[in-house]
Design a protein around this nucleic acid. Structure first.
Lengths: 137, 137, 137, 137
DNA sequence: GTGGTCTAGACCACT
DNA sequence: GTGGTCTAGACCACA
């Protein structure tokens, strides 16, 4: 059973919430390579949303290389691989950092406080563990 | 003369870039309390964008209390005051950190690399001065 | 006016025909960087198909980095850039070559004939011109 | 024993992989005219796939004239004969070349690199023997 | 007017 | 039953 929460008050569209939620689950190792995902219609029923919305989220993750479809069988978590060129990764990191900085610029938190929060969030993703050097679980 | 950069490649809509840009200018003291802002049409011409877009940004900032209208005279930078409760600020920081972490979870950067980038971005914003504005420690 | 033909007898889905058609037009330099594309609804009317189908094709090209949306203004041909890692490019080339070879394996053409056809098709795309080294027009 | 590889990561559906694989084996002479094919269930077990999928592949090849059923005895490789007109072959080659060129147009490989890959793939298929089967010079 | 999102419902190919 | 495609029609944010 996939554990995803759809929040109607969220600024993100529904399909994005699913994409983010599943990406997080995969990053944290809760959905290891080869795991079968719930069917489009099944997850749609579970979340009480339209099947097309789930299909859109799955399609997004498939194009990102995190999932792969086996015809008539369903969708599965695929072998992790890096789709993006270094240049593109650099660009996305810079964009994300800038957006984040802008988002919190007007809040009254110290740099140290913010950095600690970010570090905690990154650690939760299981990234950067020096003892094995892998990015996922 | 207001110094704001509009970037078409940015993921933020233009009005949001103006809001963020002006908020930054005010936070950094480049636009002290009482400064008159350029007219909607004037700023629109300067940035070569639609006047409605500037108006929307001004409306947003006014409703947030950073600007105030003086009938027939234009918009002015208002007296600084804290509009967001601690609870609200906490919520926004948590949301921003989570969104940021998710955004970069799949990129091949180490925690250290990411933290350095974030720190650099925060420093660039002129935040973190220990003499004021911190909520903890 | 974009010149795309939708063939109902084609094995490719409609949105894929649009993606391929536009990618070809861009690759051949008929749609230089910065060109505004016809609106989703406009192209849908022109091709007498559903607007969602056009939107899906545009979304695909946007995620591939060939187009970029400017909110409220429309879609534009973006600066060419390489989104994919070398590893991923290698994988896709190998896949395409294998699929192509399988597709024509049972036809009675000589290797030389086939290679000439492929070379002609590549030349038509304006690739590999040694005098400037760029991939696009 | 039929020697076919089913690749789950392949873009082609499984039944197509079987069709292509068997056509290849027949073209290369590994399955001469009159050879009895394994039963639907036997091949399905060997490849660990659904029997319906094998049946569909066999039906496809039978309708194409490469296999023929002998009542109660099973399926056999049939007498080779040319089923496709020159016009049809020409059409398929052109289609395949166009699709291939489009597929790789956006990758950063030189024409020469691509042609070498194609040539290698064709050579591997054992095609291009000059003593027969060429349509032109 | 522009693209983006979502719903509802249908049909198809594949297993 | 599975995902993929397409249609029709609605609503929203942005310029």
């Amino acid at each position: 059973m996939i554990n995803i929460q759809i929040v109607t008050g969220d600024s993100r569209p529904i399909f994005k919430q699913i994409v983010d939620g599943l990406r997080m689950e995969i990053a944290q190792g809760n959905l290891p390579t080869g795991t079968k995902l719930p069917s489009v219609r099944g997850l749609a029923m579970q979340l009480t949303i339209n099947a097309n919305t789930v299909a859109k989220a799955y399609a997004e993750l498939t194009s990102q290389g995190l999932l792969e479809a086996r015809q008539g069988l369903g969708l599965f978590v695929s072998e992790p691989r890096q789709l993006l060129s270094e240049e593109e990764q650099e660009k996305r990191l810079t964009g994300a950092v800038d957006a984040f900085a802008n988002e919190i610029a007007y809040l009254e938190f110290s740099d140290q406080e913010i950095l600690e929060r970010v570090e905690a969030a990154l650690t939760k993703l299981g990234k950067g563990a020096p003892e094995n050097g892998t990015k996922r679980g």
